[in-house]
Each structure stands twice: as structure tokens, then as C-alpha cells.
Write a protein that binds this DNA or RNA. Structure first.
Lengths: 107, 107
DNA sequence: AAAGTTTTTATTATATTATATACCTTTGAC
DNA sequence: GTCAAAGGTATATAATATAATAAAAACTTT
């Protein structure tokens, strides 16, 4: 299985976490929060599309909501393959750190 | 602080782990092992160089060893900045998974 | 001892893919 | 018609993957 890029991993993670609210803007906000960096929106859309093409995500359009600017949202959801890829990414991380000290202070 | 790419993170990790044996071929082997993928050597050299340019690694040439083909090795070592960047990458990962179930089975 | 061979390591060139930046478009309510 | 929220595109830059080549050291052969 091909390893995810960092952006792909963060996006799959955010989609899993956000559940029914997994559309672009919250995904963007969640990733910016957890990485403590400013991501541009384009840096989210393009990997999102790629993940759909790869079969890791599927999307649907929600109904519009009765708020100003409340247009239909494109909601994403993990496929079993996407879930598997994310689990694999995490497994690699676990392997990396399992024999390293807890807070990485022994330099 | 700019987030590391996946290759950069894996390389800093391997260098930290391999200590005095941190030259390209063992780094390559260690990364292939932990990710369970076949990396080409070029995919190690180029990020290695970049990490040196960014000030995250320094390198020196070892003496040659008395074995067939035992030419001098270029040994890498983390700078304090490199160490800090790796710690930060790990911190982001910890934040990602801290409220997610242990083995990610609740889909 | 000189010349060629094999092994280990380092390095470069280039094509492909991913990311970042800066825009533009659509939709719905006010 | 304007404003706000969301979706989307174009393009430049950067990173990764692939496929070679080059150098150095010891071994082998003559």
C-alpha cells in the first residue's frame, strides 16, 4: 500500500473526526488548528479531489441551510480503503516511536 | 515552524535512531523497514540534502574502513533545529490521535 | 606491480506528483 | 443589489520517484 502524504493523512483524519460536518471549511480549520499553521484553501481542495479519485473518500452535496450564504455543502466520508490507509499511516507512526523515549528528550 | 514532509520526518527519525551509523544506505534500509515500502535511493538523498540546507542536519565524511568497497561514508547528525522539528512533528501526531480510539476501530 | 573486477557508497538528471498562492464563481439570505 | 458562506480553478513552486552514473576501496588475475 502506498503511504499517504502528510496533507492526505491530515485530511482523512479530519474527515473521520468531523463526521457529518466534514466539508472543506471545517476540514481546513481543523487541520490548521491541529498543526498550528496557516493552510490555504487550495491546499485542501486539491488533495481532497485526489483522495476522491484514489477511492479513499466519497462526497455528496448536502441540502442548503436557511442562513445567509448557507449554500449546499460538499460533505466527505471515508471509504473502507480510506480508513485502511489512515490506519496504516498510524501503524507506521506507532512503529517509529515504539522504541523511542516518550517525549523524545534523550538527545 | 514549517511542518516537515513525510520523507523529511522519516529521515530525521532514522538519523536520530542510527546514531553513528547514520549514512545513506542504513537510513534507506531503516525507512524501508518501518514503512514496509521500497524507497529508491534518490528519494533519500534529495531530502537529505534539503535537510542539510535547511539547517536540520549536518554531515561529515567518515574514514574509510578496511573492507571490500569500504569507502568513506557521509554520516549525518541532527542539529538542535532538526531535533526540534522532529519533536514538533511528533507533537502534532500526538494531538491528532489523543482523542481518537486506540486502534482506530470505531468507524 | 599493473590492470581489470567487484562491492559499497555517493551522486546527478529528469520526469512526475504534490503543495502553496492567488485568484474567481456560485448560491442563498438580507 | 449586496453580503456572506461555500465551492472551485490556474499556475507557480517544491517535493518525490525513477533511473541512471560516478567514485573509492579491496580483491583477482596476469
Amino acid at each position: 500500500m502506498k503511504l499517504l502524504t502528510r496533507a492526505e493523512e491530515l485530511i482523512l483524519w479530519a474527515v473521520l473526526r468531523l463526521k457529518k460536518e466534514a466539508y472543506c471549511l471545517p476540514i481546513h480549520a481543523e487541520i490548521s488548528r491541529v498543526t498550528d499553521e496557516n493552510w490555504s484553501l487550495g491546499s485542501i481542495y486539491m488533495p481532497l479531489d485526489r483522495l476522491v479519485k484514489k477511492g479513499y473518500l466519497v462526497s455528496r452535496l448536502s441540502d442548503s441551510t436557511p442562513e445567509r450564504g448557507g449554500r449546499r455543502k460538499r460533505i466527505y466520508r471515508l471509504t473502507p480503503e480510506g480508513y485502511k490507509a489512515l490506519k496504516n499511516a498510524r501503524k507506521v507512526q506507532d512503529r517509529m516511536w515504539e522504541k523511542m523515549p516518550g517525549k523524545l528528550e534523550d538527545i
